[in-house]
């Protein structure tokens, strides 16, 4: 039987390397997945340009961060990006509204098949991707400034007297707080406000919504506002946490879509739950448990291999496998999304 200290150490170890990062990553995915699900349920297409839209919003935030830093407008201890998020959101909103006006609206008015709009969104995806790479270049960029940690692993160790440390990064705290705020506001908006209810009605039954006097243009407009906001926040938080590179953002499309489908396409709550299912699976399956079990098992049983279920390089594969499993077992997802 391991000592209490060892159990605690094992738990702290897991928290530091798996649970906290998974919570952070899950929160970032959740915001992106929420945006996809909103577009899906109101505009009725799977938006393949979501990941590249996130890259666009982040690119705007990075440019603005550079400008703010040069002007000396920063907040001590926290990343400047937080200060510029509202402005980046506004630019992304304008960008998405223009895309809607110039691209998607035509297909909406003409009642195009959903798959045609999906194809169009792939065109938009590549334009956005090209635009972002044109502006930012293809290299990785780190734009998180301010203090890197709220508290470091060492500070935690001295404070708790344990041999394992649980560090809390500024980017992690920022992500969790901001994501909570954003998701809370979106849900409040959808559940309690008149426009939010109109959006839900529109998503439920478009014809009946029109017969109730709901203005479709307003609903679409509001949707893009919400989507752009969520998209920018998700992108900036991901970038603060892991750095910005266009390719990495492009690859986010898979986990984001997996989250949406796992949760049930079209269900906002499903998108959030799905995002955490994906992030925790990814982290739990790719973590090497050797040290964790050293704490828990007697010396005689100590493992000699890494005890890693899947190589870290396959973390994106995890979301794909989960996606396939869900499609095989329950294509509606956890919260009964729309399957056909």
């Amino acid at each position: 039987m391991p000592s209490f200290d060892n159990i605690l150490n094992a738990f702290i170890l897991l928290s530091n390397f798996v649970l906290l990062p998974a919570l952070t990553y899950g929160a970032q995915l959740a915001l992106g997945a929420l945006a996809v699900t909103l577009v899906y349920s109101i505009l009725r297409f799977a938006n393949f340009s979501q990941a590249n839209n996130m890259a666009f919003g982040t690119a705007m935030a990075i440019l603005l961060t550079g400008f703010f830093q040069s002007q000396g407008w920063t907040i001590s201890g926290f990343p400047t990006a937080l200060l510029v998020i509202p402005l980046a959101i506004v630019i992304t909103i304008i960008c998405l509204l223009l895309t809607d006006r110039w691209v998607y609206r035509y297909y909406r008015i003409n009642n195009a098949k959903s798959i045609t709009v999906v194809m169009v969104s792939i065109g938009v995806m590549f334009i956005m991707g090209g635009l972002v790479q044109l502006i930012m270049g293809p290299e990785q960029q780190i734009f998180a400034d301010g203090a890197r940690f709220i508290w470091t692993a060492r500070e935690f160790k001295t404070f708790s007297g344990l041999s394992e440390g649980l560090a809390l990064k500024t980017s992690q705290l920022t992500t969790i707080l901001l994501a909570l705020l954003a998701v809370g506001l979106v849900f409040y908006f959808l559940q309690k406000t008149k426009v939010g209810k109109a959006m839900r009605a529109f998503s439920d039954n478009e014809d009946l919504a029109l017969l109730s006097g709901i203005n479709p243009d307003k609903v679409v407009f509001t949707t893009w506002l919400l989507v752009a906001t969520l998209t920018t926040i998700a992108g900036v938080l991901f970038g603060l946490d892991k750095g910005f590179s266009p390719l990495q953002y492009h690859l986010l499309l898979l986990p984001v879509f997996a989250a949406v489908i796992v949760g049930g396409i079209g269900s906002p709550l499903g998108a959030i739950v799905g995002a955490f299912v994906i992030s925790f699976s990814e982290m739990l399956l790719t973590y090497a448990y050797k040290k964790f079990f050293i704490y828990l098992l007697p010396t005689s049983l100590e493992p000699d291999s890494l005890l890693q279920l899947i190589g870290t390089e396959y973390k994106y594969a995890v979301s794909f496998v989960i996606l396939i499993i869900v499609l095989l077992i329950k294509p509606t997802g956890i919260f009964k999304g729309k399957v056909l």
Binding site: R200, A201, D204, L208, L211
Partner: peptide, 12 residues
């Protein structure tokens, strides 16, 4: 107007 089918918002 009360349509024949799909006359409610089912998830509300």
């Amino acid at each position: 107007f009360v349509p024949q089918n799909n006359n409610v918002f089912p998830t509300m």
